[in-house]
Design a protein around this nucleic acid. Structure first.
Lengths: 345, 345
DNA sequence: ACAGTTTGCTTAATCGTTTAAATGAATTTT
DNA sequence: AAAATTCATTTAAACGATTAAGCAAACTGT
């Protein structure tokens, strides 16, 4: 069963393909197609169940109505949720999404970018990874529309939609301090990505603003690729250090999962032995024996807005630059419960 | 900056586009292109950083090297993991994946199917939802290659890659019985999908083979769309029924999450108040205060094999029908720990 | 009645590739 | 030396759509 093309309809109607195209695209008024023939064409198209060939349309128009979404890993719930929002929002506007996972790897990210550019996606939504600045510059130079999502490079002028990580982390710190903890550590990725630095900076400022002296041993930075083992080492060190922390902020979901597993292994009780606040969100946090306090990023809004910005740019390339930082919300739970004995700063 | 096309290269080299195409596709031998000119063409292509236009290629060849993956929901970890495997395996073979979430909704699934068919995907990998038999028939009629993943329709002859759900559920039942439980319930979706029926059947046979009388109140079937509330009602009923169960099998990840949340609310202790076995897999099961026994489906294998089957079919449409049931593995944990007092059947 | 306008349709180029067929020159065979 | 073969390249159609431009025929006004 061959696919039905404009030509087939034209033949059956005894007209040229041009007419068929006009009618089927609702241009019959401007192009003065006869009423009778227009009706006939529509009928035949319906009878043959005509479905336009997107490839041909795209080749001609230069628009594929497709957007590329580059993330770290679709099997990570944070990105999976984002992806779902982006998918839905795009579909609502007649766009299709192609998702690529780069595993926080700049090289893979390059590959994806190129594959998707060759596939003529109209634009990108990108969760950048470390060392991918050149890719951002490349897109700017080539004038390919894109929006950075969740992470951005402050030194590069781009559209972006991200969380106010400084504030989020600051709030997390303040929350712990108010709950009576003063020896507070943070576990983050070893990375010079801005969003990660901001999380560390927010945490430090929370301490500073409460006259708590920060100790270097409280900041643990682990490599993404060696997370499994390094998280354990980091926790071991944190526990045996001079100023043993009473609370940890996990700067990402992945770190929290690994950290919690090890904390369980060590039979440490949350929050009495160690209070916890984590970034990210997932069912785990609800179901943990001691529900985990977490920083809820406005996933839905982040995803929706990134699509919105990108589509605006696609519709009008002259559209001005759009940058927005959205506020996260701290969801306080048992894992950071106020200590019975309040320890002032 | 315009995109570089074959024409541009041809112009610079002073030859026709045909030659350029031949050389760049490695057909210089068959088509006897001069060595010197071939070299020149390659050099120019490199200098101009030529990237072929996939749309044009696809329009001409009728092949897009794209596969459509239709699942229930990318934000569900089971599907997210599957999607990741499929993505990687496809990429390895030069294919791109477009993912669509249908929310277990046949109508949405139809939409997705049509959108992707218009986008000329070469084939589909589909996790079918209830009431989508007509879609499967449609694909067969239209001769569009596809492989059913995780779920299949026994009455329709198709390629499929799925788990042996009967066996998996049977094993889950046996495991609980061996661990000393005899009043065992199961929570499943109200559905006539084969994979779900098989899970119930396996469970029932495990009871039967151990001379345990099955009580209707032990089988709770809830509607997917009203899961949140119906799971609670179901658990309430299960607890107040005459033969109150000591253990529950959750037939899906989603049910388990909802169920566990409610069990926590009720302050029931796992496994002493209620033992648990669940299908699906995710971090939650590891981190729950009492690690959850679960049926581990061979995700990696399922995903890989589905891609493999599909690609074989794409390469050779005459390829015979391929059907495989893979065995799941029960991962025994605390949530189904052997009771101290063994209760024989 | 004739120029000018409107109407309703067709023609043909175009997007960027691929590839069968054609072409003409150089080389080999007889 | 003519015929046949080989070699290296070009031409042009095709994929399926869009759309500017062209062209009769019918209609308008004077």
């Amino acid at each position: 069963m061959k696919k039905v093309s404009l030509k087939d309809i034209a033949q059956q109607a005894g007209v040229s393909t041009a007419l068929v195209s006009y009618v089927l695209n609702g241009k019959e008024k401007e192009t003065r197609v006869g009423e009778a023939i227009a009706h006939k064409i529509r009928q035949i198209a319906k009878d043959l169940n005509y479905q336009p060939n997107h490839l041909a349309k795209s080749l001609r128009s230069g628009k594929t109505h497709t957007i590329g979404l580059i993330i770290a890993d679709i099997s990570n719930p944070f990105f999976a949720n984002i992806a779902r929002v982006v998918e839905d929002e795009a579909k609502k506007n007649g766009y299709t999404v192609i998702i690529g996972s780069c595993d926080e790897h700049a090289e893979k990210s390059w590959d994806l970018l190129n594959v998707l550019i060759n596939r003529q996606v109209d634009g990108f939504i990108i969760v950048s990874c470390e060392g991918s600045e050149n890719q951002v510059h490349y897109l700017k130079e080539r004038n390919i529309p894109f929006v950075l999502l969740d992470r951005h490079f402050p030194e590069i002028q781009t559209d972006f939609v991200a969380t106010n990580n400084y504030k989020a982390s600051y709030d997390a710190g303040i929350h712990l301090i108010k709950s009576g903890y003063s020896k507070i550590g943070i576990m983050a990725y070893k990375s010079n990505m801005y969003h990660m630095e901001e999380r560390v900076r927010g945490y430090k400022h929370a301490l500073r603003d409460n006259n708590i002296e920060f100790h270097e041993s409280w900041l643990k930075e682990v490599h993404f690729e060696a997370m499994d083992s390094e998280v354990k080492t980091a926790i071991d060190e944190i526990l045996s250090a001079e100023h043993r922390v009473e609370a940890i902020i996990f700067a990402t979901y992945g770190l929290a999962i690994n950290g919690l597993k090890y904390i369980n292994e060590l039979r440490l009780k949350v929050p009495s032995d160690m209070a916890i606040v984590s970034f990210g969100q997932a069912e785990v946090f609800d179901l943990y024996y001691c529900p985990i306090t977490y920083v809820r990023q406005p996933l839905e809004m982040l995803g929706k807005t990134s699509v919105e910005y990108l589509l605006k740019k696609l519709k009008n390339p002259e559209e001005g630059m759009k940058q927005i930082l959205m506020e996260a919300k701290l969801i306080a739970r048992e894992s950071s419960k106020a200590r019975t004995v309040q320890v002032g700063g």
